[in-house]
Design a protein around this nucleic acid. Structure first.
Length: 269
DNA sequence: ATGGTTGTTGTACAA
């Protein structure tokens, strides 16, 4: 059985429920990982997802800020919520499910944005972001024997030069500073993760986010790749496609992030 | 160099 997963920073799941429904109707991923739901668990619009065949819903929400949700057609075997940096933020949600002859652990993550000033000595939000990425180094794709792994979400860092519209102009801008990009790539390597988006599109610009602070995002195309799909190495040969739904940036009242969908083939034999 | 927009909440703050 093939397997597909979508990740999307939705920036309020209640406000943009029609957009999420459109994504599920038109692209029908097996699993959808949402970030920035900004929705307490008891107010999550579960009915709308069940109506579309997504009966299995794992939540880690909080009022007003952050919040992640994992929505699935297939049941979860296990659900874990990790409190990164022990500050009580709802920024991580881990689920495990069966897809064909595989078991897959899925980490859904929302890394702190980090504020505007890229100096941890004077900006506590940036300090928090760097600490969060440090903790991410401990998240290993091979942590569970016999279980494949995916790590998706808004990591709020664009690690490669081609992940931003101007490498030079963003070197001192939070999301693309060397301390962040090096930290993220270190976490990726130490955790035995494959960057599935770059496996599919090794070179050239690849963006998933365009600021609201440009009236028309298509004119200057000043994007960044803040959203990611990482997988355990065993899943890499199974990867068929990664699709960045850039068109969603122009949907009615859009999120500033667009969905990313990865599709995997069945294990041969 | 600066300011630009959006969502939630409350008349500020985070992104």
């Amino acid at each position: 059985m093939p397997f597909s997963i979508a990740t999307w920073n939705i920036n309020s799941v209640r406000l943009r429920l029609p957009l999420v429904e459109r994504l599920l109707r038109e692209h029908a991923p097996d699993v959808l990982c949402l970030q920035e739901t900004k929705c307490p668990n008891d107010q999550f619009p579960e009915k709308a997802f069940r109506a579309l065949g997504y009966d299995h819903i794992a939540l880690h929400g909080q009022k007003g800020y952050h919040g992640v949700a994992t929505i699935s057609r297939v049941p979860f075997e296990d659900i874990v919520r990790q409190d990164f940096c022990a500050v009580g933020d709802a920024r991580h949600l881990s689920t495990r499910l069966v897809a064909g002859d595989r078991r897959i652990r899925i980490h859904n993550l929302y890394v702190p944005a980090g504020g505007d000033e890229p100096d941890p000595a004077i900006n506590p939000k940036f300090r928090h972001k760097l600490d969060f990425v440090e903790e991410l180094r401990l998240m290993n794709a091979e942590a569970e024997p016999g279980v494949s792994a995916l790590l998706v979400g808004d990591l709020n860092i664009a690690p490669l030069e081609a992940d931003v519209w101007s490498h030079k102009q963003l070197l001192k801008v939070v999301s693309h500073t060397p301390v962040e990009t090096e930290g993220l790539l270190r976490a990726q390597g130490e955790g035995n993760w494959t960057d599935m988006m770059r496996r599919h599109v090794p070179e050239g610009e690849l963006f998933t986010w365009w600021s609201y602070r440009n009236r028309d995002w298509t004119v200057s195309n000043r994007g960044r790749r803040l959203d990611h799909v990482w997988g355990s190495h065993d899943l890499a040969p199974q990867l068929e496609t990664v699709e960045v739904l850039s068109a969603a940036r122009s949907w009615d009242r859009p999120s500033d992030h667009v969905p990313v969908i990865a599709r995997f083939a069945d294990t041969p034999g």
